[in-house]
Amino acid sequence: MSTVMDIHEVLEHLPHRYPFLLIDRVLEVVPNERIVALKNVTMNEPFFPGHYPHHPVMPGVLVIEAMAQAAAILSFKTMGTLPSDDSVYYFVGIENARFKRPVSPGDQLILKVSIGMNRRGMWKFNGKAEVDGQVAAEAELICTLRDK
Rank of each mutant, 00 (worst) to 15 (best):
S114D: 12
L109D: 04
V36M: 00
I142C: 05
A139N: 13
R17C: 05
F76T: 06
P46W: 04
I115M: 07
D132Q: 15
G93S: 09
P59F: 04
F91S: 07
F76A: 06
Q108F: 01
I7R: 08
P15Q: 03
A66H: 07
V61R: 08
K100A: 10
A37M: 03
L141V: 09
D85L: 11
H16Q: 13
V63Y: 03
V131A: 12
H51F: 03
A70E: 08
Y90M: 08
Y89V: 00
A129P: 08
R101Y: 04
P46A: 03
N96W: 00
D86M: 08
A139H: 09
V29R: 04
V113Q: 05
Q108A: 09
N118T: 14
K124W: 05
G60T: 14
P49H: 12
H54G: 12
R146F: 01
N32P: 02
G116Y: 08
P102A: 15
N96F: 01
R119F: 02
E45T: 15
P19G: 05
D86Y: 11
V92H: 05
A136W: 10
R17T: 08
P53F: 01
P102D: 14
R17K: 12
Y18K: 05
I64W: 03
H16T: 13
L14D: 06
I115H: 07
P46V: 13
Y89N: 05
I23Y: 07
H8K: 14
F125I: 01
L11E: 10
H13S: 09
Q134P: 05
P46G: 06
I64A: 01
D6E: 11
V135F: 05
A66M: 04
V26L: 00
E138M: 12
I23P: 00
L141T: 12
E12V: 11
A97C: 10
L22E: 02
S75H: 14
G116H: 13
D6L: 01
E138W: 02
V30L: 02
N40Y: 03
R25M: 03
R25Y: 07
V41Q: 05
V10N: 07
H51Q: 12
S114W: 00
Y18N: 07
F20N: 09
V131F: 06
I73P: 01
E95C: 07
G93W: 05
C143W: 02
Y90C: 05
R120K: 14
R120E: 09
Y18L: 00
L74R: 11
E140D: 14
V103E: 04
I115V: 14
N32E: 15
A136F: 09
W123E: 06
